[in-house]
Design a protein around this nucleic acid. Structure first.
Lengths: 146, 146
DNA sequence: AATATTTGGTATTTATAAATATCAAATTCT
DNA sequence: AGAATTTGATATTTATAAATACCAAATATT
């Protein structure tokens, strides 16, 4: 009951997600390898996609097919999300943070071993969840930079 | 004398710029049509490129060839430059500003008829001049979003 | 216990973005 | 005045990113 309303709940195995999105299973894995999506992983290492994941992947699909932004372009754009402001990490956290410095890869593609992110699940982090499309990123920038 | 030190001075006709960059004249015009560069235009409509333009084009070239970011990706990234903060335009200026709303084209690709930018030459604006590469944009964001 | 699906890897295909070629008219420069 | 260069526009080529196909081993499902 509750689960059906919560778009964050991992529901669909990769084959179903692929069918919903009308792309191949391998393309879905490729997007993951590139760091565009972080699907839920079962203990067996099998993937599960939530409705939110599907929505995110639809945005990625539009970015690639309609807006003609390359995968590396999308990664670069994601790397501009002001994660440091969103999670309010300390200046010490930022000091050695690869994500903070990176201008080519999104923060959730790094393993954070010695900062606040070490204990957080990127999949559940609002840095990841809230900025799946360019529109939302620009709006975020506008709201933060007055 | 002075001119030789000033990297902003329009010096090279398109053929020379193309030779320096090792690309075709047409590719240079294409980058301009896409809104990646704004070369100086003589009254006769002929283009002149400054050393700063060459430097900028080198960055664009690296973004395309090495970082594998598509032209539309670069345009989208440019659209995220916080121009409103850089030039400190008024909230009224922002209201009807296409650039402020756009998340696919850089501000300098719009004709601004009724705001502060109407009287400014984009080519000479620091929004355009200072953020020719992704690194500088992320650093700008970091400096503005504490 | 048997069938279906997933996993990760490499090799191949396809779709198309990026660059090039060609053109006549206009401009520049010696 | 005449040779060289630029202009914009369309049509074509090329390079490669994105997607697909195929594989054996592992896991899931009934």
């Amino acid at each position: 009951m509750e689960n059906l309303d919560n778009i964050e709940v991992p529901l669909f195995p990769i084959s179903v997600a692929a069918r919903i999105l009308d792309i191949s299973v391998h393309t879905l894995r490729m997007y993951e390898r590139e760091g565009l999506v972080v699907p839920f992983k079962k203990k067996s290492n099998h993937r599960l996609y939530s409705k939110a994941d599907i929505e995110r992947l639809n945005c990625i699909r539009r970015a690639i097919n309609e807006s003609k932004i390359s995968i590396n372009g999308i990664k670069t754009i994601y790397s501009l999300i002001p994660c440091w402001d969103i999670i309010k990490c300390s200046s010490k956290d930022r000091e050695n943070c690869e994500a903070y410095k990176s201008h080519s890869n999104p923060c959730w593609t790094f393993k954070h071993s010695d900062n606040i992110c070490a204990t957080n699940e990127c999949r559940d982090c609002s840095v990841y969840k809230d900025y799946g499309e360019c529109k939302s990123l620009k709006e975020k920038l506008i709201s933060v930079i007055k």
